[in-house]
């Protein structure tokens, strides 16, 4: 218990140091924008993404045959997180006319290709699993 208190105290001090850095190196206008970003990030995840996932899982459980659910779940986790992690690349929002070496890949076409391959893999895997006499679990 004493060790945990000590570790926790270290965490509090480190976080407060970060807050101090933040407050002293930026002005109140900048604090406000960061606060908005903090809130927006939490809302985007805790409300929008979470609700979307709950909805998707409900629909998936209704519509997908049992044998398809495991491959669809694996695909959703891998494809979904890859998509979210590469939003700045997929949108090419930071591209600049004067710099051809930046964001210089066909991101949208690649993403559609990846998505098509994922759908295909789920379909093949679901089909093969549904032909087995019994599901594995």
């Amino acid at each position: 218990m004493r060790a945990r208190l000590a570790i926790g105290a270290v965490g509090v001090v480190v976080a407060l140091y970060g807050a101090l850095l933040f407050l002293t190196r930026q002005d109140p206008g900048q604090w406000l924008e960061v606060a908005i970003w903090f809130a927006a990030g939490v809302v985007a995840h805790d409300v929008l993404l979470s609700a979307l996932l709950i909805g998707l899982c409900l629909v998936g459980a209704r519509l997908l045959p049992a044998a398809w659910r495991a491959p669809a779940t694996v695909a959703l986790v891998v494809w979904g997180t890859l998509t979210i992690a590469t939003i700045p690349m997929l949108t090419r929002a930071g591209a600049r006319a004067d710099n051809a070496t930046l964001l210089d890949r066909p991101y949208a076409a690649t993403w559609w290709t990846i998505s098509a391959i994922v759908v295909l893999l789920v379909a093949v895997s679901g089909f093969l699993r549904s032909r087995r006499p019994r599901a594995q679990e």
Partner: peptide, 30 residues
């Protein structure tokens, strides 16, 4: 990806300061 969809705060300063906040909160959580 050199995308700066914010208008006022400095990425460098803020990412540095909030890193301390995040790591401190993580240590406390652990």
């Amino acid at each position: 990806a050199q995308w700066y969809p914010w208008s006022s705060f400095s990425f460098r300063t803020t990412h540095y300061a909030i890193a301390w906040v995040a790591i401190g909160a993580l240590v406390l959580h652990i």
